[in-house]
Design a protein around this nucleic acid. Structure first.
Lengths: 171, 171
DNA sequence: CACAATTCAGTTGTGCACAACTCAATGGCT
DNA sequence: AGCCATTGAGTTGTGCACAACTGAATTGTG
């Protein structure tokens, strides 16, 4: 758009460009969040809580650790979030008997029942955005590649970190 | 990937797909944030603070309101953020004399000087991700379109909200 | 001019993200 | 068996996002 064919980019251009892509991704994420906030209000869920419920609806009872791998969240985020879901009566948390360090998140009847009302969420989102399935798929693929690249990059930039278990499951 | 040519998607598929795109965008945003966190640590800036500084470096002194339009943030987010930037000595905040409701954010000498160290940030990010300029541009365009669509959608979904000034400036 | 509506920054309260930490349970190693 | 590093969940503290609100300054209208 503003780029002339033969004009080399200077520092100012790079900073401006950097701001643009940062901003675009940030804004898209927040805009998405905002739309879901509106749609999910009926269900009494926040966006991250919805993501947790989606995983549980699909996979059933699951230890917190594994939930964290799926959603790429650590216990510092999940613990209070799950506590709120439990307070809302949607899940139960029970210590594993075979490994008492582990806590399993399980759907309550109420949590299971909520799924019936959640099935309309994707429709409402899709209808609101007017996006084609293919378009969504394509964007998702690009974002996943971006995430993978950024992960690897963060890892390299980190001075001396421990390997942090590379066997992440893809959702 | 898992989609068969002739198989119609049922509710479960839609929920799973919804989880995937939500998750992908969320994860990408956080991964980006994480990489910037590492790179920006040297400058003593967080990612949103960096975005604010980028705007000020490019445009100079600017009222909080306008900053909010650029970054799509309201005073509830900007006020404490700017207070921290002021505490760090990077900006000054001064009430406008012509309109005492308005507060202008201005760079201090220290804030201006920080730009010299910030010019390497985009290079480090670019080097870390290995992305081509064109690829970044393309993604940015898609995300901007997505944001615009989501904005319009949120607006339509909102039961009865006030117009909320539609003259947003594009960064 | 007076008064009501609007605008702007700031505050409060809730929830998420993440680093750094605690603590108990576990598993490997001698 | 005894010791110690590791693992898993949770807590604490900081910062961001956003809704709802406050209060002061300004603007519009009669």
């Amino acid at each position: 758009m503003t780029q002339q064919p033969a004009a080399p980019l200077d520092d100012q251009d790079f900073l401006r460009l950097d701001g643009q892509i940062c901003f675009a991704l940030n804004a898209a994420s927040r805009a998405f969040n905002g739309l879901y906030r509106v749609v999910l209000k009926d269900l009494g869920l926040t966006y991250p809580q919805y993501l947790v419920m989606l995983v549980l609806w699909e996979h059933g009872t699951m230890p917190v650790k594994q939930l964290g791998r799926h959603l790429r969240l650590d216990s510092g985020t999940l613990s209070p979030l799950l506590k709120r879901l439990e307070a809302a009566g949607l899940i139960r948390r029970e210590r594993s008997t075979e490994d008492e360090r582990s806590v399993h998140a399980a759907l309550t009847d109420e949590g299971t029942a909520l799924r019936a009302r959640a099935v309309e969420v994707p429709r409402r989102i899709a209808a609101a955005t007017g996006f084609e399935l293919e378009e969504i798929r394509d964007l998702q693929t690009r974002l996943s590649r971006l995430t993978a690249a950024l992960d690897a990059a963060s890892f390299d930039e980190e001075p001396g970190e421990e390997p942090r278990g590379g066997s992440r499951e893809e959702l």
